[in-house]
Each structure stands twice: as structure tokens, then as C-alpha cells.
Amino acid sequence: MKLNNRVAVITGAGSGIGRATALAMARRGARLALADVDGDGVAATAHEAAALGAHATHHVLDVTDRAAVAGFPAVVRAVHGKVDLLMNNAGVALGGTFEQVGETDFDWLMDVNFGAVVRMTRAFLPLLHASDDARIVNVSSIYGIIAPPGQAAYAASKFAVRGFSNVLRHELAGTTVGVSVVHPGGVATKIAQSARAPVGATAEQVEQRRRTTQKMLRMPPAQAGEIIVRGIERRAPRILVGGDAKAAALLERLAPTGYWNLLKKAIKR
């Protein structure tokens, strides 16, 4: 897929993987409609993209706001004229076992991580169908491949993104719209620092969990962004980001119900 002069909509573009992917696309001549709930962050990303020569607009968007999402395609079309690529990247984190995580927090995370993917896809699909070469890129996680304890809500949302993406790919086969699902491993974003803590967890438990998670987030976002964009250019149906994601995918295939016992031993080492 040639990204030059293609219009890409990216959610969660204010930082992390969203920003890195936007800049990687900017370097390839894509035109960008960048969205995030963080207005300052997404404006900074647009400024960096413009410095690379890209035409980039930035938009404050809460992906849980149904009316705002439904109206967003018209906003993008008015500025850019078309849409060729939709990257559903916005996401949040919430640590804790199923029994620790309350219903309200669980529903909040599912609404951001999965519900928004469905809403954005439904809203933009008519514009994508109008393109001669379009793609939907949904960001899942390594936890959409493996399901470690303490990630009940997060893993549920990312497995849902994976399943939804696979169904879409099958349903859209034969059209001009392709689908990629992205599984990042440990990318050094702020997701662990900004993760919501479960009700009832002590400050010590929360800090310990964040420290443990942060140690696994090693890949620079810029590197992850390049891997993702190269996958898009190859029209890859699944994009594994990092050696840890590749290893997890292989281990899950070899031991679909017993991989966690093997991983626990590796983590202890």
C-alpha cells in the first residue's frame, strides 16, 4: 500500500504508538487527521508531522462519545476530502484480577478499548468503501494473544479487538478495504503510568504492579511506529511488534492452554 497522499485517521495520536505511527506515515507523505482526548498532545503530534512536510489536522475527540464519533467523518471529509486509512489506536489500561476490578471500571475500559473500535469503524466504513485502496488498522496487544492473570479487563478488550478485526477481514474480502490487527509487545509508552488502579488496591500494590509492567516496556515508540507502518505497506493481516510479541504468539500456538506455566518459569529467570 502506497501511503503518499493517502488520508489516514489515527485515534490516540497524542502520544505513544499513535504519535509514532503518525510520524512514520508523515515521512511517507500521508495526509493525517489526528484525534485524541488530549488536545495539547495531539496538537504537538500534528506540529511534528507538519515539520516533516505532512498536511496534518488535529482534533479533540472522546472516542466514547457516540455523537462525536458519528459526526467525525464529516469533519475529516470537509478538511481532507476523503479517508483511505483508519487506525483505531486509542486505548487505556486497568490492572487487577476480575474479582478486584469493579463493574464500572471494567465497562469503562471495554468502552474505550473495544466499543470505540466498533463505533469508529461503523462511522468511517462508508468513506473507506469510497476509496480505491483503503485499510482499517486496529491496535490490539500482546494481551490479545496471551492472557496473563491480573489483566482480566484489558485482555478481554484486546481479544475482542482481535476477533472483531478477523471477522471484518473475512467480511470485507473482495472489497477495496483491507484489515490489519496490530499486536504490540512491550513498547515504552506511558500506558502503565496512566493505568487506572482497581478499587481496593493499596498504593503499594499499585506501585509494584506499575514497576513490574514498566520493566517490560522497552521498545522505543518510534521503532514500533515504523514496524506498524511497514506492516500496513505490506498489507499484513497481522502485525506483531517486537520479539516478545512474536515469541508469545509462537508459544500460544504450541501450547494454547499451557503457555502460562512456561511463561511463569521464564519470567522468574
Results as ranks from 00 to 15, higher is better:
residue 7 V to M: 05
residue 7 V to R: 00
residue 10 I to W: 07
residue 10 I to M: 02
residue 11 T to C: 02
residue 12 G to Y: 10
residue 13 A to R: 03
residue 14 G to M: 00
residue 15 S to R: 15
residue 16 G to L: 10
residue 16 G to W: 12
residue 18 G to F: 12
residue 19 R to S: 13
residue 19 R to K: 14
residue 19 R to G: 04
residue 20 A to E: 08
residue 21 T to Q: 00
residue 21 T to H: 06
residue 21 T to K: 05
residue 23 L to M: 01
residue 24 A to W: 06
residue 25 M to R: 05
residue 25 M to D: 11
residue 28 R to P: 02
residue 28 R to H: 08
residue 29 G to F: 10
residue 30 A to P: 11
residue 30 A to S: 13
residue 30 A to W: 08
residue 31 R to V: 13
residue 31 R to K: 15
residue 33 A to K: 03
residue 33 A to V: 04
residue 34 L to K: 12
residue 35 A to F: 13
residue 35 A to S: 09
residue 35 A to E: 01
residue 37 V to M: 13
residue 38 D to V: 00
residue 41 G to Y: 07
residue 43 A to P: 08
residue 45 T to F: 12
residue 47 H to G: 11
residue 50 A to I: 11
residue 50 A to G: 14
residue 52 L to S: 08
residue 55 H to P: 08
residue 55 H to V: 14
residue 55 H to M: 12
residue 57 T to D: 13
residue 60 V to E: 11
residue 61 L to V: 14
residue 61 L to E: 08
residue 63 V to Q: 06
residue 64 T to M: 14
residue 65 D to A: 07
residue 66 R to K: 14
residue 68 A to V: 05
residue 68 A to D: 05
residue 70 A to P: 01
residue 71 G to R: 15
residue 71 G to I: 01
residue 74 A to L: 09
residue 74 A to D: 15
residue 75 V to Y: 10
residue 76 V to N: 03
residue 77 R to I: 14
residue 79 V to K: 14
residue 81 G to P: 09
residue 82 K to W: 04
residue 83 V to G: 02
residue 83 V to P: 05
residue 84 D to C: 10
residue 84 D to T: 02
residue 87 M to G: 02
residue 87 M to Y: 06
residue 88 N to R: 07
residue 90 A to W: 13
residue 91 G to N: 01
residue 92 V to T: 13
residue 94 L to R: 11
residue 95 G to Y: 15
residue 95 G to P: 02
residue 96 G to C: 00
residue 96 G to H: 04
residue 96 G to S: 03
